[in-house]
Amino acid sequence: MLTIDNAAKLLGMPKTTVMRWVRQGKLPTREVNNQPMIPQEELIRWARKRNIFLHRDMLPPARKRSSKPESLSSVVERGGIFFNVKGRTPTEVLKRSAQLVPLSPEIDKSFIADLLIQREKLASTGIGKGVAIPHPRYPLESLEVPALITTCFLAEPVDFKAIDGKPVFVLFVLLSSTTKLHLHYLSRLSFCLREPKFVGMLSRCKEPADLLSSLREMETSMDDA
């Protein structure tokens, strides 16, 4: 439940306007202790139907979203680590990988694949050393979780037209709900990839646990620095 104040922040409108909308019955409202409150989920649905932009980062920390983003390893863990993903062209592997992203079944995965392919067409996400970080062009506001990274080790290396020309053998599909998170994880990932030790581990990696533990190790060194 949102108060009028919070709803106003979310909508980016003055409080007086939101109060008028409530009075006119234009917003979904519940009365709690004689005070109008606005159910958050209904408001989000209402806004989406009408194409009204919501300032999501204005949301109160209702779901205990900590101010510090989650660690890279937990985001990677959430996204799942998959081996032996088949495909011969970037488009093929992207399509396969998108299907592997663990999102609720209602979400059309091919939509995500389209987003990734679209982005890939603009410029390669292959950042060298056989690694690519495919991602959509815009943050996915409707994402159920703040962010996730799905790791796909490919069955055979694919030419992604990467900067260094090396064929790609692992994809980190990065989906995030805000630009801020996107940049955060992107920079963390690229930090890891600068370490030859980590890249070496990637090329040998056979078990998800290997990747995760190595990531945790990298991250502690990053946080200490």
Binding site: V22, R23, Q24, G25, K26
Partner: peptide, 8 residues
């Protein structure tokens, strides 16, 4: 019935 303007 505590209707809002639009419904009233």
């Amino acid at each position: 019935f505590r209707l809002k303007d639009r419904q009233r």
